[in-house]
Design a protein around this nucleic acid. Structure first.
Lengths: 230, 230
DNA sequence: CATCGAGTTTGCGCGGGCGCAATGTTCACG
DNA sequence: CGTGAACATTGCGCCCGCGCAAACTCGATG
């Protein structure tokens, strides 16, 4: 994927795009490598060009909570581009081999301060994520596991999916453990629920692989539509 | 409280401050009134001058999750100042009689686009909140209720507290129900935990009132310090 | 000061979902 | 193509914390 194909860069004017490209460095990581760790000082701003990245927090007990899955074109660690934050709130792990565009912190801050369009787009991105966090926080506080898991799958399908024989393939290599980290439960419970839904023909599951065969049924499991809560 | 005493306004230059003040409208609400509801189209940007405001989401089943408690000087609904968002993700309720500074959406957007300092400060604010949401999301996904409640109380004490005989008074009028909405549990469980801690001398509790008598013990209950998770 | 409603406490029962162990399965890699 | 480690499944037991009911207490309000 080219930098200009990124949703965020695509919305910029020609001049801003040129300046971004000029300052970008390319970075590569192997599957399983960490791009950075939570608590570490901010290095800079990333836009993912190819592969998949997972952003997560692990608690003292080792439990992992996945905050975001990054697909090509997405920016992350945008917090590094704005001044006062000190360190990464999450760790970033390459789920596959990845290539990224990277801007060191100083550079990113300069670009953001000189390109108000860029600042605006990043801010919108940050607040969109904040809203998702709020929704997930409500879900995990008040809904039951099956609802949360169903909604998690639907959300993932909306973010990165590919058509597949008789279904929609969720285009992230997610283990049961990963799904548990997204939905706020354990891999055991995830496994049981996926098996049950598979038996009922709602899903087709495989190793680190989920295909949604009936989104409406899944939405039913999630307890109906939710977005515009009146 | 005067507008210029607000943390966010206080960091602005004289010129920006003048323009903000000039465009501000004063608004007043009675205790129990709603400033806006979730799903409603964005009205504009607020800075609280006096009183207490609660931002929360309620699910279809009626369960309430409190996203943020607002104290004087804090800005909220900052999302209204940036372009593409459509509607409030939360409802805002006056916990006491309140007075606010208000900027209609158009005005707020104009100010933000013409005052980069303001845009930067609001963005920092938004990302700080996003980080708190991430932390709460991890907590509610992986920790037990007592830990979460303890951490909730400590967080509140850090945000708005007053010294009091032999303790620190949490300066929000919070019912057990409210604390449950913050910690992701039920009012019953909150009541039981507060009673237990009160018996052990860690807290002193009253109607919609909590005084922390031993922060270290409470931190112990929370499972130790957490912030710089290495 | 009397009243009423909102807020709180406590007992009791039970069920969702965690935790572990053992086994089975699949894929990556040499 | 063979092998091992990572990933997945399933049974079983138990406990945290929810949910309701009933009783109580505080404080705002007229």
């Amino acid at each position: 994927m080219n930098l200009n194909d990124s949703a965020i860069v695509g919305q910029l004017g020609a001049e801003a795009r040129r300046r971004l490209s000029a300052a970008a460095e390319e970075r590569n990581f192997r599957r399983g490598e960490a791009l950075f760790h939570q608590g570490e000082p901010l290095k800079g701003l990333f836009i993912l060009l190819a592969g998949r990245v997972k952003l997560s927090q692990v608690g003292p007990d080792g439990h992992e909570t996945i905050m975001r899955l990054v697909a090509p074109g997405d920016a992350f660690a945008a917090v590094a581009a704005f001044s006062h934050a000190r360190s990464y709130p999450v760790s970033a792990l390459a789920m596959t081999d990845v290539t990224l565009a990277f801007w060191p912190r100083r550079t990113a801050q300069r670009l953001v301060s000189e390109l108000p369009e860029l600042a605006g787009l990043l801010t919108e991105e940050i607040s969109r994520h904040a809203q998702v966090f709020q929704q997930r926080l409500r879900e995990v506080s008040t809904e039951r596991v099956s609802q949360r898991l169903a909604r998690t799958l639907l959300r993932l399908a909306g973010q990165a999916s590919r058509p597949h024989d008789a279904g929609t393939l969720i285009d992230f290599p997610l283990t049961r453990q990963d799904l548990a980290g997204l939905a706020g439960t354990t891999l055991f419970t995830v496994s049981r629920l996926l098996s049950a839904w598979s038996d009922r023909g709602i899903l087709q599951v495989g190793r680190a692989r989920v295909i949604i065969r009936s989104a409406p049924d899944l939405l039913m499991e999630a307890g109906g539509d939710d977005s515009p809560a009146s």
